[in-house]
Design a protein around this nucleic acid. Structure first.
Lengths: 107, 107
DNA sequence: GCGGCTCATAACCGCTAGGTCATGGGTTCA
DNA sequence: TGAACCCATGACCTAGCGGTTATGAGCCGC
C-alpha cells in the first residue's frame, strides 16, 4: 500500500490549494470576493457591507491575502483591496486538472 | 449601503457551497478524493493509504458525504465509497462561474 | 506637531475541527 | 447462535477559528 500521506491534515505544512480552500470556506470571505469582483474597494467600504466589526473584516482580508486571492495597496490613509483574478483562476485550473469530471469543464 | 450580509459566518445556516469548500479545505480529504478519482474503494482500503486511525478516516468520509462529494454504498460487510463526479464539478462551476477571470477558462 | 482619520494587531473568549481510544451495530459464516 | 470482521459513533482532548473590544501605527490637514 502506497502511503499517499506525504503530508497529512495536522502537519502544518500545507498545500497552497488547501490554503485557498480554507480561505473560501467562509460565507463572509466568499461575499468579500464577490464584492471585489465588481471593482476594488477600501477596507472601510467593505466593512460597510457587513454587520461585522472592522477588525473582523480586516482579519478576513488577511486570510484572503495569505491565500493570494486578493491584493492590497496603500493609497493615502486608505488601503485598497482588489481581486487577484489570475491567482483565482490558476487555483481553479490546478484543482480541476485533478479530476476528469472537472477537466471536461475547462477549455 | 446594501448590507449584503444575508447570512454571515457564524450563522449556523450555511450555504451548500461553503460546506463544499470546508470539505475541501483539508489535505487528507483532498487526498481521499484523489484516491476515489481513480476508482471506488472500501473504507478499509482508504484507511490503508494514511497514517490515521479508522475512526478519523470515517469522520472525514462523513464530512465529504455531507458535502455530497462522495457516495457510499453498503456491500456485504464493506462500505464502498465513490466520488460524486457530477456534484463536484457542479459546485465548482457554480462558484467559479461568478468570476470573469474564471469564466474565460470554463466552457 | 497635533488631532483625526483609516486600518492592523493584541488579547481574550466560546465553539468548531481534527485527532485519539473505546464501544456498538450490521453482516457473514461456521 | 456466536465469533469475527467492518465500519460508525460516543466521549474526550487540544488547537485553531471567528467574533469581540481596546490599542497602536501610518497618513493626512490644519
Amino acid at each position: 500500500m502506497p502511503e499517499v500521506d506525504s503530508m497529512s491534515s495536522g502537519g502544518r505544512d500545507e498545500r497552497h490549494l488547501t490554503k485557498v480552500f480554507k480561505a473560501l470556506s467562509d460565507n463572509t470571505r466568499q461575499e468579500i470576493l464577490r464584492l471585489l469582483e465588481s471593482h476594488q474597494r477600501t477596507v472601510g467600504e467593505i466593512v460597510g457591507n457587513f454587520n461585522l466589526s472592522q477588525p473582523t473584516i480586516s482579519r478576513h482580508l488577511s486570510v484572503l491575502k495569505e491565500a493570494d486571492l486578493v491584493i492590497d495597496q496603500r493609497q493615502g490613509q486608505n488601503v485598497i483591496y482588489r481581486l487577484n483574478d489570475e491567482a483565482l483562476s490558476t487555483s481553479m485550473r490546478e484543482f480541476f486538472g485533478q479530476f476528469r469530471s472537472c477537466q471536461e469543464s475547462l477549455r
